[in-house]
């Protein structure tokens, strides 16, 4: 069984070209090379955009724009850095710019909750941790509510929080990507967590007050 798996892996690695080779081909004018590169890295780019924006259309547009930018700047890519990290920096900066562009007042974001959102909050308040995790995977409104909660953060705070907690980036990596000092990244992450906790507590206590009536 192990031998079969190894032979499949060997055959796969023989046919799959490394990123650097595809980049060289794309720079030589082979259109298919960049398309293959894009399809290879599309999933993580999409996931990252969806952590910033709940609107699927917008996330899809940002994915497209990221690959367009990457293609236009491909000559500036240096092989010392993995292509995925280089591409991620482009995506992060695009999402950050978009967050700043779409920045609204927090009051506008505090709207009425829908029934499914309130049901989800009630579940978070009352169910066991295991049930909460299981339910979150199949509830779209859990995602929508999470986005509404994250929308209350300032663009700087949200960007740092997503990169640090979701993408597992280090403080120095975030600082280098955004062109900030490490101190600023740490302060933003600390503030973001505080604000997020405060708003989450407020949401859940509002739901508890309603349930108690």
């Amino acid at each position: 069984m192990l031998a079969i798996a190894r032979s499949v892996e060997r055959r796969w690695s023989a046919t799959v070209k490394p990123d650097q080779e595809l980049i060289a081909e794309a720079l030589n004018g082979q259109a298919g090379a960049f398309a293959e590169l894009a399809s290879r890295h599309r999933a993580p780019v999409e996931r990252l955009c969806q952590r910033f924006f709940s609107d699927h259309e917008l996330a899809r547009d940002l994915v497209q724009e990221s690959f367009l930018k990457a293609f236009a700047a491909l000559k500036t890519y240096r092989a010392e850095m993995p292509f995925a990290a280089w591409l991620r920096a482009i995506v992060i900066n695009l999402c950050y710019d978009e967050l700043r562009r779409r920045r609204r007042k927090p009051e506008e974001l505090v709207g009425d909750f829908t029934e499914p959102e309130l049901d989800w909050m009630q579940l978070v308040n009352t169910a066991s941790p295991e049930d909460i995790v299981a339910a979150a995977e199949e509830r779209r409104n859990a995602h929508d509510l999470a986005h509404r909660l994250l929308d209350m953060l300032k663009p700087d705070d949200r960007t740092v929080l997503v990169l640090k907690d979701s993408e597992d980036m280090s403080v120095s990596e975030i600082a280098a990507t955004l062109g900030w000092s490490e101190a600023k990244v740490k302060i933003r992450a600390f503030r973001a967590r505080q604000v997020l906790r405060k708003h989450a507590e407020r949401m859940l206590s509002a739901e508890r007050r309603w349930a108690a009536r």
Binding site: A146, L150, R197, A200, L204
Partner: peptide, 14 residues
């Protein structure tokens, strides 16, 4: 704290 965490986790950690 876990319940607070669960509100943002569907986007942050799924």
């Amino acid at each position: 704290a876990f319940r607070n965490f669960a509100l943002s986790a569907p986007v942050m950690h799924s």
